[in-house]
Amino acid sequence: MEKKLRELFDFQKFEKNADLQAVIDKVHARHSALELSDDDVSFVAAAGMPETALKRKRPGEEEK
């Protein structure tokens, strides 16, 4: 069974059967949602408090 699965998934990278690709994409989506993107990571400061990473507006400072 393992060899069959390896062969079929390898063939899928070539043939791209729509039904099977939908299953693969759903699995990837489920797991990428658990991982932060690089952009999201940049908003998290070392202390883990997102708002500290954002530039604070000083009194009298105009927003750009």
């Binding site: 699965l5 079929l8 063939f11 899928q12 043939e15 059967n17 039904d19 099977l20 939908a22 299953v23």
Partner: peptide, 13 residues
């Protein structure tokens, strides 16, 4: 014989 579009569909199901 195994590497056919049909077998990929069976795997998906």
């Amino acid at each position: 014989a195994m590497l056919q579009e049909e077998t990929l569909g069976e795997l998906a199901a």
